[in-house]
């Protein structure tokens, strides 16, 4: 399988075989880091909105492989303010770099960038649409901590309506015969369009607002933050804030090998007392961002097949 020059825009663009191949390469990169792999290669990191974690993760990945980084971290320092189109900015950047990472608040911007550029483009998040490298590191974390991806019982709790990470991960996991448990109040449940898609793919799922109802079934629990900025009315936010809390009491009702994930940062969804238990996978999950991004950079630059 050759992913040279491939754009990484949406998890929907990848087949099961391609996902498994990428995960295999991540494992290879993690266990055997070749530190000069991207020597002489230039990454253009175009961050049209701030995202410290994603940006640092890409920069660190590139530097660890001896590559060079150019770019900017907010839109206001570029010619964008002078009215240059995204298309032109990307065309121009393509002259100076070997690969582009783009983070942009508008949805579909990364797809457009990929069409404008002759070099591979990696989507570092386009509004609330896609963030494929996050999805791939989530998949890798599940595979690494559970030893497999097939036939898992996976719960998602929190804001499932707006949670981009949840939507993409659900679609990616649908390839592996999962059973899903969507745990959220009605107002924050999974959008119908995703449930339709799961139904069409014959994926089993349960919906509930009760955190403990299926807790004994779960192999993985993916926790998300309920974001204040989603609610126009602060009272609405107060209603949902803190309704699901993963703490010592909750652990009384779970499998011994349940793994708890969270895209971070957390507010108070997961009690700090969980951090030191075997259940906590979220710090490892965050750390997996580096091998995943290294592997993707090496793959699209044709340095690993």
């Amino acid at each position: 399988m050759d992913l040279k020059n491939r754009d990484i825009i949406s998890i929907n663009d990848f087949s099961k075989e391609e996902l498994l191949h990428i995960l295999k390469v991540v494992k290879q990169v993690e266990s055997n880091p070749k530190n000069n792999l991207l020597k002489g290669k230039i990454l253009a990191a175009l961050f049209f909105e701030p995202s410290t974690r994603t940006r640092l993760s890409f920069i660190s990945s590139m530097e660890q492989l001896s590559g060079t980084i150019i770019g900017f971290s907010t839109a206001n320092v570029t010619s964008i303010q002078k009215g240059e189109s995204l298309w032109d900015t990307i065309k121009m950047t393509g002259q100076y770099a070997d690969v582009i990472v783009i983070r942009h608040p508008l949805e579909g911007s990364a797809r457009l960038a990929a069409e404008a550029a002759s070099i591979p483009v990696i989507n570092g998040g386009d509004g609330s649409n896609q963030h494929p490298t996050q999805t791939m590191l989530d998949l890798y974390t599940i595979q690494k901590t559970k030893g497999r991806l097939e036939n898992l019982h996976i719960g998602f709790v929190g804001d499932l309506k707006y949670g981009r990470t949840v939507h993409s991960l659900v679609i990616a996991l649908a390839n592996f015969n999962p059973t899903f448990y969507f745990i959220a109040p009605d107002d924050l449940q999974m959008p119908e369009s995703y449930l339709d898609e799961l139904f069409q793919k014959k994926v089993k799922y349960h919906k509930t607002s009760d955190l403990t109802r299926f807790s004994k079934e779960l192999d993985v629990l993916y926790v998300t933050r309920i974001q204040k900025e989603r609610f126009p009315d602060p009272l609405e936010y107060e209603k949902f804030k803190g309704i699901y809390r993963i703490d010592g009491a909750f652990l009384q009702h779970v499998k011994k090998d349940l793994k708890i994930m969270h895209p971070l940062p957390r507010i108070d969804e997961i009690d700090k007392s969980i951090d030191n238990t075997e259940h906590a996978a979220y710090f490892g999950q965050a750390a997996n961002g580096i091998p995943v991004r290294k592997a993707l950079l090496a793959l699209v630059l044709g340095k690993i097949k």
Binding site: S85, L86, W87, H104, L106, G108, R111, L112, D126
Partner: peptide, 12 residues
């Protein structure tokens, strides 16, 4: 129909 779609913000 998505107001924050790139097609509603850039000539494409």
């Amino acid at each position: 129909s998505n107001p924050v779609c790139i097609t509603n913000n850039e000539q494409v």
